[in-house]
Structures are given as structure tokens and as C-alpha cells.
Write a protein that binds this DNA or RNA. Sequence first.
DNA 1: GCGATATAGATAGTTACGCTATCCATCATG
DNA 2: CATGATGGATAGCGTAACTATCTATATCGC
Lengths: 235, 235
Amino acid sequence: MRMSELSTTTGVPVPTLKYYLREGLLHGGERTSPNQARYDSSHVARVRLIRALIDVGDLPVARAAEVLAAMERPELELSHIFGIAQRSVTERPGADLPTTPTEESREPSRGERRIAELCARRGWRVHGDNPGLAMATRVLDAYEALDQPHLIAALDDYAEAAERIAAADLATVAAAGERTRGDRAAMANVVVIGTVLGDTLAAGLRRIAQEVESYRLFPDGGTETRRADRQDPSC
Amino acid sequence: MRMSELSTTTGVPVPTLKYYLREGLLHGGERTSPNQARYDSSHVARVRLIRALIDVGDLPVARAAEVLAAMERPELELSHIFGIAQRSVTERPGADLPTTPTEESREPSRGERRIAELCARRGWRVHGDNPGLAMATRVLDAYEALDQPHLIAALDDYAEAAERIAAADLATVAAAGERTRGDRAAMANVVVIGTVLGDTLAAGLRRIAQEVESYRLFPDGGTETRRADRQDPSC
DNA sequence: GCGATATAGATAGTTACGCTATCCATCATG
DNA sequence: CATGATGGATAGCGTAACTATCTATATCGC
């Protein structure tokens, strides 16, 4: 398969494929001469994975490259790949979070304390470098800064839901392990795809459930709920 | 309060404040002369809200502007603001989703059917324009395209979790309504903040719970789990 | 064999976004 | 009344993700 065919079967333009090659997201084809190469189904699968991570999972290209690179290093443990995938969906480009000054002394913010309490309540033991800790802490601190401390009331429900999702995620990985008899590459695939796309899936279902719940709680909905000019409920 | 003071109390540089003024995120101060203005606590609160939406909620500036504009239109119902907030966190800049060609005839993808089945199973009734529908559908279709159909096994657990989170979200809004005796502006605040930052909170807690669950399911963790050089579990 | 087309690789250009920087004509203030 | 800040307008910058162009081969159809 030549590059143009790879392009047509995946729907990704040739210049973009070249760009992915340059950036190391896509492995080069098998050389047939100094300036010709042949691509195969592994390239098709890879391109599809790249687009899924970028388009559906909304990863920046550079993050996707890191995740893909990690997937291909057989010496890395799954737990490590998990961590890299988590970081890839967490660290946004313009983060620049005000790096804890000296990392050591610094009294914890209220959000930090609340998260620590939450972990204690639920018996969660987590490493301090879990990207979710900083993420959740920032939200709780923002709730306070915005003078909306009552929003914290939902924290335990969120935690319960997170636990349920995580259990499903890990069960999926375990099932993949059994199905493939522990094939590391296959499991790494499940870890990466499940972690990255799972975020999007959870967010999407939350939007749906919010609408449903809003009907349940406010059945009247006024004269019109959402856009009145649209078609009827589809589900 | 002059602009420089607004800048120091919020930590946002003056040129950036001017930029937010230009873009309509921030309302102008009270004029004291043709080229002087005075800012007050409403501006401080607004700037904090802007930064929370952008930094913590990861909204693009333009989306934040839309949400803020909607919040200030008293004739808009809460349900409408809800929808706008949902869209703001959903529609990413480079989306360019291949707009359903003519919107009418087009057999549904497998993902679409699975989501419809899910809604039927759970008794969810949703409008077809709910942004979560497209989001979830894209993920399910990606699972298929990536040859990982078994990931769909987690769908019902995700849905259960989403329901729980949505119930907490709406309960928070209802509580705010009671506390403020139905003050629309206050409720709109809760809706926007809860919807936008709630996404981040849910994602963060998911990362934490994933790590916890991974210890539970794979207690050995090999010789090292996550980065061995980091400090001990913090929670 | 040969001309049209395709290809790998390098380099440069493009667009969008989120600021930053510079000007300038007031304005406020010691 | 000199000094420095302010509002407003305009221009510039850095990053990200492509996209376009160019060049020297390769390949394919005939």
C-alpha cells in the first residue's frame, strides 16, 4: 500500500500523514528504495488510533505522540502506561500550573484538605503524583474562590460515580488480559483507548443524564424546554 | 478601584483584562470621564469566574464569552443556560464534525443505535440536539473502528455513574434555588459553574479511583507501581 | 523506453488562539 | 504642572496543527 492509498482508506490527507511521520506518531513504511516505502494494515490501524486520540479524545498531537511511544516500549509496565495515558488527558497545553514552590513546605489549600478527607473517607490510597489529585483540588479551590462552597456537597456522589467508572475500566483491562492470555500490547491498547476515550464517553453521558434529570426534577420546564424548534426527543 | 488594582487583586495582567473587555467577557467599569473608569467587586468576581472557566474548566475564551453572555440575559430560562453551558464544554475548536448530510435520511451508525438502546433501557428521554449524544456516539463508533468492541461492556456502568452525577448536579441547582428563593442569577451561576467545573472534577476523581482500583485488582503491581522514585501515597 | 504521475523528505507558509506590546491622547495627582 | 496611570486602538508574538511548495528520484501505463 502506498501513501496515497493509506490516505484514502483512512481519510487523512497525505500532507497530514507526512506530518504524523515527522512527529513520530506514525512509524515509517517498509522501504523499497531510498525514497519509496510500502505501508500495511498496521499503519491503517495506527492512523485510526491517532485520529481517535486526537479527534475523539481531544489529545494534543504531542501528547498523543507520548502515549503512542509509551505503548511501544515493551519494558514499560501497564501501570506506567496507565499513568502516562492519565497524564495525557490531564495536562492541557496552557496549564502552567504554578508549580508548588519547593514542593516541601506549604500548607495545603482547603481543596487539598477536602480531597485528603475524601480519600480517607473512602479508603482510597493514592500517590501524590496522580494527576487527578491536582485536577480535583483545583476545582474545589475554584468553588471556594467563586463563593460557591455548597457545590462541594456533590463531592461524595461524584466520588461514588468515579469509583464505579474506574471499576468498569479496570474490569475491562482484566477481561482483555484474560482474552488475550496476557498479551501486553493488546492490554496496553485497551488501557490507552479506555483511559482516553472513556473520559469523553463519561462526559457525554453526563450531559445526557443531566437533561433527563432536569426533566425529572423540573417537569414543567416552562413553556419551552431547550430549543422548542427542534425535533422531539430521540430516545 | 482602578484597573491596576483589579489586576493585582485578581492576579490577571492589565493587558489581559483589556483583552477580556474587548472580547466582551468583562463588563466595562463605571465611567468617571471619557477615558477613565472605576471597577468594583462585581468585576473582581467576574474575572475570577472567567479564569475558573478558562483555566480550570478549560473553556476557550470564545466559549466562555458565550456562556457569560447567556448568564446575563434574564429572559433566558435556566434550561437554556444549561444547554449553552453543556455546549461550551463539548464543542472543541477543531471539531468540524462532518455535519450530518441533510440531517434527514441516513441510517444510524452502530454507536447511535447502541446509545438509543441505552436510553431505552434506562428510560432516558433526550432531545436529539443534546451535545452528549454526539459525543458518546463518537466514542462508541471509535471503539468499533479501533476493533475494541468489548470496551462497550462498560457502557452501562458509565451510564449508571453519569446518572448519579447528574442527580447530584441537579440537586445542587435545586438547593441553590431554595437557598436564594429562586434568584435566577444565582441559579444560573450554579448551573454554569457546576456544569463546566463538574466535568473537570469528575475526570479528576476518575483518575484517582482508577489508580485505587488498579491496586485492588492487581495488588502485586510488579516490583514497582507508578514512579517508584516518588514519595509514598499521600492519601 | 519514456513521459506523466507519485513519492520521501525538507522547508516554508497558513490559520487560529490567547495573549502582549506599543502608541497616544487624555486624566488624576502630588 | 510635571509625572505617571488610564482607556482605546492597533500591531505583534508564540504555539499548535496543519498545508503548500520544492526537489530529486521512482514507478506505471503505454
